[in-house]
Amino acid sequence: MISDFHCKPSSNSNMTIESASVRVVDTIEKSDSDIWNYRGLELDNGMICVLISHPTIDKAAAGLNVEIGSYADPNEVPGVAHFLEHMLFMGSTKYPDENAYSKFIESNDIKPQDIEVFIRQMFAYFYVDSLMYGNLTENQSIEYMIMFQQKFHQNHLFQPIYPSMWFNHRQLMLPEGCNYAYTMLNDGHCTEAITIYLQCFQQTLENNALIDVFAQLISEPCFEQLRTKEQLGYIVSAKIFSAYGAQGLQITVQSTFGLDHVNRRIERFLDSIRDYIEQMSEEDFQKQREGQIMKNMEIPKRMTSQGNTFWFEISRHEFCFDRREI
């Protein structure tokens, strides 16, 4: 059962946030002179929380205690837990400077009112894509979705939004004949990798079938030529890359030979593809075509694989659930 629920906050509602818990403790013992308020929570996931508030303080702070440390260090890597602890404060991709995130929070003097405004903005175009898959009947799925909607609708906190307001991913269709290159250096690896993406066309049933067969035709020759014969690297692949309405062929090679050399070898292989296909016998072509059909018709061996296929269609709002059969 697949259903959608889209909502946004009402303009005249008061924001309240409730945390699902399995146990609440309001009887924490404290000193008679202690004016702080305490509440204990045991959440659904087993996490133990203590909420502490003061009647005159308007700032908030949070702390997390992870019950793991040096006692869990592998014998061959002593001190790794302490090392990781310090790495938390050394910066990240978004905040590259040391302690940058903490300084950002402190310098902006974020108040509870700022969080409330942010929550309203975050939910202004809030929607949910849902997938219910497995041991459920249609009526049960609808019942669960109604319960979910009612949770969001309580206190008139949200209201539906129009489909035109949904957030949809898009991909740029590249102009014909264009050529773009992006290079990223990584000093932590001694090998190099190159991915060549040849964007073909927008997705249609006919185009999907054509590129499926084409990828089937060249995947094995690509591996044999670049991996087995030329031994450019251990990882060599040729596959379809489809995203948000556009699709193309993607060839990836990880190698130690240098990107310029590998790029030339890939280009040479692509130049040879036309002759390879034109010289292919009708019998061999039909075998490849039938092989691709059998691959598309193969039943997933695990529920997660089938579920991922469904979710691929839902997350892109394409909803072509019989894409393989078509």
Rank of each mutant, 00 (worst) to 15 (best):
M280T: 04
D58G: 06
H86G: 06
S53V: 11
H82N: 09
H153L: 15
K239A: 03
F148H: 11
Q202F: 04
E325Q: 14
H317R: 14
Y133D: 08
D58S: 10
I105T: 06
T93K: 12
Y234E: 05
F123H: 11
I2T: 10
S272V: 07
R265K: 13
F321A: 09
Y180K: 02
T204I: 13
A124F: 14
E98Q: 09
E29S: 12
Y182A: 02
M297S: 09
M47H: 04
D4C: 07
M297Q: 14
M165D: 14
S21P: 01
S21F: 08
F152L: 09
K295F: 06
F152K: 02
I115Y: 11
G63Q: 07
L185N: 13
H317L: 14
Y197P: 02
T204S: 15
C200E: 11
I52Q: 06
N207T: 13
D109W: 09
R264P: 01
E116Y: 12
S102Q: 14
S53R: 10
N179K: 00
N186R: 00
F285D: 01
N208Y: 09
T195M: 10
N207I: 07
L43A: 05
M122R: 05
A238F: 10
Q247P: 00
C178E: 07
Y234N: 04
G188K: 05
G188F: 01
A246I: 15
D73L: 07
T204H: 04
A62L: 08
G69H: 06
H54C: 05
K59E: 01
I2V: 04
Q250H: 04
I314Y: 13
L41F: 00
L249V: 05
A215C: 14
A124T: 12
I146P: 01
I293D: 00
Q171S: 15
I273V: 05
K59M: 06
Y244A: 02
I251Q: 05
I35M: 13
Q154N: 12
P78T: 10
Q203V: 15
I211W: 07
V128D: 12
H317T: 07
E224S: 12
Q231M: 08
S102A: 14
H156G: 15
A238L: 08
E224T: 12
Q171V: 01
S10K: 11
S141Y: 04
M122W: 06
A61E: 05
D73W: 04
K295P: 03
M47F: 10
S272I: 01
L270T: 02
L205V: 08
Y38W: 14
F123R: 04
R268N: 10
F223H: 01
M280E: 01
